[in-house]
Simulated scan of single mutants.
Amino acid sequence: MRLHTKIAMAVGGLALAGTSLLVTTPAQAQGQSSCYAKSGHLYCGNKAGVSLWRSPRYSEHDQDAVDTLNSNPSYFQCYVSGQKHGGGNNIWYRTYGDVSKRTGYVAAESVYTWKDPFPGVAHC
């Protein structure tokens, strides 16, 4: 190969190819960028080990955390509007926990969607 041939390098979620620059989101860099809605439900990558809350809001009270979402990717039943969170919106997704199988809410900031609410997902 000659030096003037396009050289591609991938470094921490960035890909350089000639004069092109591709920047990926953290979810894409982790290979968890494919989310889809089917029959009103969401199937998507997410942060594992996050708490599921009784209501669509964070709480200082431990009893308001009803379960833990350990799976990734996960199934989400639907979405609701709740407390604004670090993701810059107030969308929360309802799902089942992995420890006690209780239903709870996880902030959209913990789900690797590109838009919230995710298109095609039913409102609870």
Rank of each mutant, 00 (worst) to 15 (best):
M1S: 13
L3A: 11
H4G: 06
T5L: 12
K6Y: 12
K6N: 13
K6H: 11
I7S: 11
M9W: 12
M9Y: 13
G12E: 13
A15S: 12
A15T: 15
L16S: 03
G18V: 07
G18W: 08
T19D: 13
T19K: 13
S20H: 11
L21V: 15
T25H: 02
P26A: 08
A27F: 02
Q28D: 12
A29P: 00
Q30M: 14
S34D: 15
S34N: 15
S34Y: 15
C35Y: 02
Y36G: 05
Y36P: 03
A37G: 09
S39Q: 14
S39L: 10
G40Q: 06
G40V: 02
H41M: 07
Y43V: 04
Y43H: 14
C44M: 06
C44G: 04
G45V: 02
K47G: 00
K47T: 01
K47Q: 07
K47P: 00
A48V: 00
G49L: 04
G49R: 05
V50A: 04
S51F: 12
S51Q: 13
S51V: 02
R54M: 13
S55H: 13
P56S: 09
R57E: 13
Y58F: 15
Y58S: 11
E60V: 10
H61K: 15
H61C: 06
D62T: 13
D62G: 09
D64I: 13
V66T: 06
V66C: 09
D67F: 06
T68P: 01
T68M: 13
L69G: 01
L69H: 03
L69P: 01
N72W: 08
P73A: 08
P73T: 05
Y75K: 12
V80P: 03
G82F: 07
G82C: 10
Q83M: 15
Q83P: 06
Q83I: 06
H85V: 01
G86S: 15
G87Y: 09
N89Y: 04
W92Y: 00
Y93R: 00
Y93G: 03
R94D: 00
T95V: 10
T95M: 06
Y96W: 08
Y96H: 08
G97T: 09
G97D: 11
V99A: 09
S100C: 02
S100A: 12
S100D: 11
K101Q: 13
R102I: 00
T103C: 01
T103I: 13
G104T: 11
V106S: 02
V106G: 02
A107P: 10
Y112R: 01
T113Y: 05
W114L: 12
K115T: 10
D116I: 02
P117D: 03
H123F: 11
C124K: 01
C124V: 03
